[in-house]
């Protein structure tokens, strides 16, 4: 064996050694459980885990995915995404544009606009839970909804209210994202447009927006994926209620698995969620790939 082969062998061994911790963890906590989830869907789970489960093949997949409950879950989830993603992006962009200026004290405003990054989903939800309480909440008082059952207990308003809390909590993140994007824009182009006499709004629509499209695409993807995975705010604010009004897919998974002791059912829903996110990511990617213009081109 030559010294070169030996060195290559040693290099290979070191390579495997270095990727082993990460890949081992992925294997145990991402790939194996993903396969196991799909497998669990083939079984009717007993109400408590010490009892035997029954193999039913694809029957449970067909039953769950064909049920009207699943379709309603999907509808509500899509509605939630629709309520949060565009609003979030618009608000973030407006704030970023507002703060993209050089006036004294602007740093303080930037800090304020990014401040909600310090809140977690739980912090924001618990704060709003009490602010929206019909009897003691300041927000419900100001909006004239004092007394009665409040927005979170109203089937029409529960999901929009949860969406509002989500948008608020994400303001900091979207603001930071959009500000960074604005700052990375080539200043010469904007200056040139200014010299050409393009007015503020025209400049924004015709020059800034197209240049920002990659970042908007990114924010949309992150937002949609995050929307499908929004759990904490639902759990803390409405628990999927009232009358299923805020029962999104992820919350149904949690309820089936951990409250109704039906992990087989939940496994089928989980695989559906995985499939949807996979497809969404690809579709969005290819759809936007053609339409977005890259600043570096």
């Amino acid at each position: 064996m030559s010294a070169k082969t030996l060195r290559r062998l040693r290099e290979g061994a070191l390579g495997y050694l270095l990727v082993l911790p990460a890949l081992g963890a992925f294997g145990l906590f991402v790939f194996y459980p993903l396969v196991k989830t799909a497998y669990l869907g083939f079984f009717l789970a007993p109400p408590t885990p010490n009892l035997p489960s029954h193999y039913v093949g694809f029957h449970q997949y067909g039953q769950v995915l064909g049920s009207s409950e699943f379709v309603s879950d999907l509808g509500r989830t899509a509605f939630f995404v629709l309520l949060t993603v565009p609003t979030g992006i618009v608000v973030g962009l407006l704030l970023a544009n507002l703060a993209h200026t050089k006036v004294p004290g602007i740093r303080a405003f930037r800090t304020i606009y990014s401040s909600t990054v310090a809140t977690s989903t739980a912090v924001a939800s618990v704060a709003f839970l009490t602010l929206l309480n019909p009897q003691i909440g300041v927000l419900s008082y100001l909006f004239g909804k004092a007394g009665g059952n409040g927005v979170l207990a109203n089937p029409h308003w529960a999901l929009p209210a949860v969406a509002m809390v989500t948008v608020w909590q994400n303001i900091g993140f979207t603001f930071i994202l959009m500000s960074a994007a604005l700052q990375s824009l080539p200043q010469e182009v904007l200056e040139a447009a200014k010299v050409d006499g393009a007015s503020g709004s025209v400049r924004f629509r015709q020059i800034v927006l197209p240049l920002l499209s990659p970042i908007l695409f990114f924010a949309a993807v992150i937002g949609v994926i995050g929307g499908f995975q929004s759990f904490g705010q639902i759990d803390l604010l409405t628990q999927g209620g009232p009358n299923h009004a805020s029962l999104v897919l992820i919350y149904d998974i949690y309820q089936q698995a951990f409250q109704f002791n039906n992990p087989g059912y939940a496994a089928v829903l989980s695989i559906a969620l995985f499939g949807i996110l996979l497809v969404l990511t690809f579709v969005q990617f290819f759809f936007f790939q053609r339409r977005v213009s890259y600043a570096s081109d």
Binding site: N133, Q135, G147, N149, G150, L152, A153, L237, Q239, G241
Partner: peptide, 22 residues
């Protein structure tokens, strides 16, 4: 009658409504 929530922080709203006279 007014409806009050059976879960979350709303569970006390019916009792608070006695207090507030609503």
């Amino acid at each position: 009658a007014q409806e009050t929530a059976p879960t979350g922080t709303g569970v006390y709203d019916n009792l608070l409504a006695i207090g507030s006279g609503i």
